[in-house]
């Protein structure tokens, strides 16, 4: 019980920290955030001159990664007390990128530069959610299907496989990150990615197998069979490759692997719930077994298409 309370407090602390990440420390601009799709909201600490602050000419905005591409501002609307300005843009902004805003002559300051970005905590959550639902590895990237169709006939099997897979992928990808960051990248050994990543995964599987067999034989009896299957799952190699090509740091990598494992568990559980019902239904004899499972999975994939483009944080 006390352990759970501790965790709750910790999560609350993280949430507060995350929302504080939005705040800007310096002088004139007290807070910035993304408004609607094509808006940036700027809070000033003092009321500013309407003439100057209301003129779009006085602002330049660009994404931190491409300073040469200036984003065109169509209008600036100030609130009645002059402490909030909403910059409207011609096109929707890419809210995952950090934006740099330079304001000229506002509030008597010749030039003030400030950045707009989403809170880091929200960004981490968006990676998790993206791997879990929006870019679910099974239904939208079509990976890991062999194991998916093999173990989604019973809910019990589905849960076992999903949990074992999540544990192995988090451990294996964490180790891959360390190796990639401190050995492969500094020594320019990028071409060894595949060998290293799959080798680490087989090592993890072997290690979990040995440890579980000694520490908890009962758990091993129920989960041991799935360990062999983990290595035949394409997701386990796709996640470290994605991590390497996106240049993620450790927290992002952790969230990605957790999301990938959780997404696999989710997909398996959904599929097994349907499979148990399909067995009782009247299916044409030539479609029994795998063919109908494929068609059900296709319907799931179409349902998951509905999540595409979803942005929560």
């Amino acid at each position: 019980m006390r352990g759970r309370q501790k965790i709750t407090v910790y999560i609350l602390f993280l949430l507060v920290m995350g929302s504080c990440g939005l705040a800007q420390a310096a002088g004139l601009v007290s807070d910035t955030e993304f408004g609607a799709d094509n808006e940036i909201v700027v809070q000033f600490s003092i009321p500013v001159d309407r003439e100057v602050a209301g003129d779009p000419e006085n602002y330049t905005v660009y994404e931190e990664s491409d300073p040469d591409i200036r984003l065109p501002i169509t209008a600036v609307s100030l609130s009645s007390d002059g402490t909030e300005a909403i910059l409207s843009f011609a096109d929707p902004l890419n809210t995952t990128a950090k934006h740099i805003v330079t304001a000229t002559g506002i509030g008597g300051v010749e030039q003030s530069t400030f950045s707009v970005s989403k809170s880091y905590f929200g960004y981490l959550l968006s990676i998790l959610l993206s791997a879990l639902i929006i870019n679910n590895f099974v239904f939208t990237k079509y990976l890991g299907l062999c194991v998916f169709f093999g173990t989604s006939k019973r809910k019990e099997t589905a849960k076992g496989m999903g949990v074992v897979f999540t544990i192995v992928i988090v451990v294996a990808v964490s180790m891959s990150w360390v190796l990639y960051q401190y050995i492969l990248k500094p020594f320019s050994l990028d071409y060894l990615q595949i060998v290293i990543f799959i080798g680490l995964t087989s090592l993890t599987v072997q290690a979990v197998d040995t440890v579980l067999r000694k520490v908890n034989p009962i758990l091993f009896k129920s989960f041991g069979v799935y360990l062999v299957l983990v290595i035949a799952n394409c997701v386990i190699i796709a996640v470290p490759l994605l991590m390497a090509s996106n240049g993620y740091n450790y927290f992002e990598t952790f969230m990605l692997s957790l999301g990938a494992g959780g997404g696999f568990l989710l997909a398996l559980y959904l599929m097994s719930s349907v499979s148990e019902r399909v067995e009782l239904a009247k299916v044409p004899p030539s479609f029994k077994g795998l063919p109908i499972a494929f068609i059900v999975a296709g319907q799931f994939a179409m349902a998951f298409l509905g999540f595409s483009g979803l942005q929560l944080f």
């Binding site: 939208t140 479609f287 063919p291 494929f294 999975a297 296709g298």
Partner: peptide, 13 residues
């Protein structure tokens, strides 16, 4: 992309 499931399922059947 999601039609891949349907095509494979139908062809297997």
């Amino acid at each position: 992309p999601s039609a891949g499931f349907f095509v494979v399922g139908l062809m297997m059947g």
